[in-house]
């Protein structure tokens, strides 16, 4: 399931849904991304996430479908927030449930790695009264590349 929203989410409720009523699930693995209070040695006062409505949902659904094609998963969930967020707030939740833990761990890592390089979101950081767009990190490209099969947001 995919959700793109401004409002916060309840971690426990969302993760519980991946196994509720399904006793064949042996494990659920989840990752939550948060707004950090520092960027380098600078204090962040807020972060605003912009996205591309329509393409975002399409990209996330594609990433989710790819995870299901690669691992024997019972269910997956991607929730991504947009709008203005403060340090400590949740930005993203990805989770995967499976009969066995290996698939759940791998799929969870895959979901966030591909999301970071393919889903059309952009972060605007506010620090010291100034706003600046966050640069993409080459370490994110490296993390996504180890799963193969896609050129991120670059030419494919």
């Amino acid at each position: 399931m995919i959700r793109v929203q401004t409002e916060d989410f309840d971690f426990a409720t969302e993760v519980a849904r991946l196994s509720d009523g399904n006793a064949s699930v042996g494990g659920v693995c989840s990752f939550v991304g948060l707004v950090r209070d520092m960027a380098g040695d600078e204090e962040i006062s807020a972060m605003t996430l912009e996205h591309y409505p329509g393409m975002t949902e399409k990209a996330l659904a594609g990433i989710e479908a790819e995870a299901h094609a690669r691992w024997p998963l019972q269910d997956t969930l991607i929730i991504h927030r947009y709008g203005k967020l403060l340090p400590g707030e949740r930005i993203v939740l990805v989770a995967a449930s499976s009969a066995h833990r290996d698939a759940a761990f791998d799929a969870c890592r895959f979901l966030i790695d591909w999301l970071k390089t393919k889903a059309p979101f952009w972060k605007l950081e506010e620090a010291g009264g100034e706003a600046r767009w966050v640069d993409a990190k080459s370490s994110d490209d490296t993390a996504a590349a180890r799963w193969g099969g896609g050129g991120g947001d670059k030419a494919e």
Binding site: L49, V92, L115, T117, A119, P120, K123, D135
Partner: peptide
């Protein structure tokens, strides 16, 4: 057209 993506 957009910059390299930075979500997550």
């Amino acid at each position: 057209f957009f910059p390299p993506v930075t979500g997550g």
